[in-house]
Design a protein around this nucleic acid. Structure first.
Lengths: 299, 299
DNA sequence: TAAGGTTACGGCGATCGTAACGATC
DNA sequence: GATCGTTACGATCGCCGTAACCTTA
């Protein structure tokens, strides 16, 4: 057993169990990986892959169990490299941040700016994705840190940290009936609604708040993106339900914003990363920056 | 980086950072390991060991961090081997059980006998040690499973399972004053006491029970071993406080046993093993056998 | 001076690449 | 016939062992 065999198994999973592609990824010829796989299976005494003819089509039960350990080894190996790099120079490297549109546009600018001032040598990659994808991206090592609001806390392989809490708000044109008078869930439910797509940015809290009262919202537009919602609110399509922090006092002054904290339960935005993954010092500081920015938000 | 370098680091820790001994353990010449260590340190870019002259005298801060990952890799590598061996033949192998005298003599015989009937091909090694050593033996991979009563539940790297509960009992010769009449802590404290050494078999519960009442026991003999205690009780040195299950109705009929469950809080015997350590199927079954035996004990 | 560690060098073997072959869609 | 995998064989490079050398208790 050696580390390149471990890496091969890892790469095979990322290449639909295609030996040729795996060989390319590892910069060796295909026959080399073929032999290494055979040697490894021989060493273990039973096959790791189900084969149809010569093609690898699936993992065997053994293979499945082994893959968990393979992932642990790869992770630890990567950690060693990262730890050592940290000792040489903890001021440069890269950080991959996975997040949603709303966080990227309305929460991250400040902490990222502060972070860049401290660590000008760190390249920041932002990956925008849906909340479900965020977690996958952590597991696939496409991202180091994820910032998101929904469905995070369940995963046992993750560390999650409470970042900040926020409430939804309704936005509408100035001449809209809802711009004045008391807002209740019942009244809101009489208007066409524009809000986030399912699974996004606290959408589940909205669902819950109205379902609890036996009300059903007439959602005529669902977007992943606050700006899209605002655009159609401006066109008079209905009332926008957006995250409170997504209302910009200057840019959105043509819209009326009305707080909904008494109607829709608060949402919690969290920071998540893999438990077994060693984060370089600058990433740890980035997280601190996020927590700091989060704690200074009045909800 | 390769697995033999990882193994080298592991072995160095077990050999007082002595390269020559490490070389012996790995069945290679000393110059080989010297070079491999240099190569590895060069690859990481900074030293893993503090050196006085040429001798390795300590880990560097980097080395300390790296060692955690090294342990994870070794563990995962071992797991792969074990998992594969399990698939080839889950009926043979070895199991190392670390436990104390009391468990080995009074609890384990039945479950071990039942286990042997199911898995005659598994070699059973029993390691007898003090409770503190038990946990160390898990971490050092000297033992796979530990069965013990004290200080287990704190360790985050362990899985622990509740096995059974038991109470202490007092034993004494038939003519002893305590053989009749009500037993209270106050009365007990007036006699010389023989019981377990500190840290052993529920000793902490005994301490606690009397300290709560402001009483101090006159412990004139402390042994790791129930049989030693009984021997001196027979010689009339005093009252023995032993685990209830350590009284044998036949062999000990020359002694009077008196239940102390109303005086001393119950003790809990637990099974422990390393969280990250894959246990072969037979070991998993052995643990089930222990739990079964534990659950059939009336405390 | 013994014990522990490093450096230099030659030899061996693991693993790679080329290439021809086999199978499967 | 294009894609994917296996087998055979020669070449290379990494790693080991021998051995001489260095350093400190």
């Amino acid at each position: 057993m050696n580390l390149s065999q471990i890496e091969l198994l890892q790469v095979l999973q990322e290449t639909e169990l295609n030996l040729s592609k795996a060989a390319d990824k590892m910069h060796v010829v295909q026959s080399a990986v073929s032999r290494q796989l055979q040697l490894f299976e021989a060493e273990l005494g039973s096959p790791l892959f189900e084969r149809r003819g010569k093609k690898l089509v699936d993992l065997t039960p053994l293979g499945r169990q082994v893959m968990d350990e393979v992932a642990a080894i790869s992770q630890a190996k990567q950690n060693i490299k990262t730890i050592a790099a940290d000792f040489l120079d903890s001021n440069q490297g890269t950080i991959h941040i996975a997040t949603t549109h709303t966080q990227a546009k309305y929460f991250l600018p400040l902490p990222i700016q502060r972070f860049r001032e401290k660590y000008p040598g760190v390249r920041i990659y932002m990956l925008q994705a849906s909340p479900e994808q965020l977690i996958d991206q952590l597991h696939n090592h496409k991202a180091d840190v994820a910032i998101c609001t929904e469905k995070v806390s369940e995963d046992a392989g993750l560390v999650t940290k409470h970042c900040y809490e926020w409430h939804h708000a309704a936005v509408m044109p100035h001449n809209h009936p809802l711009a004045t008078g008391e807002i209740t869930r019942e009244r809101l439910a009489t208007f066409p609604i524009l809000t986030y797509s399912f699974g996004y940015t606290g959408r589940s809290m909205i669902e819950k708040a109205f379902k609890d009262r036996g009300l059903e919202l007439d959602i005529i537009l669902a977007a992943a993106d606050t700006d899209v919602i605002k655009t159609y609110v401006r066109l008079g399509l209905g009332v926008g339900l957006i995250a409170g922090m997504a209302y910009d006092t200057f840019a959105d002054k043509d819209l009326v914003v009305r707080d909904l904290s008494h109607l829709i339960p608060r949402s919690v935005t969290r920071i998540a990363y893999l438990k077994q993954n060693y984060l370089p010092l600058y990433s740890q500081h980035f997280i601190e920056e996020l927590l700091l920015a989060g704690s200074s938000i009045a909800s």
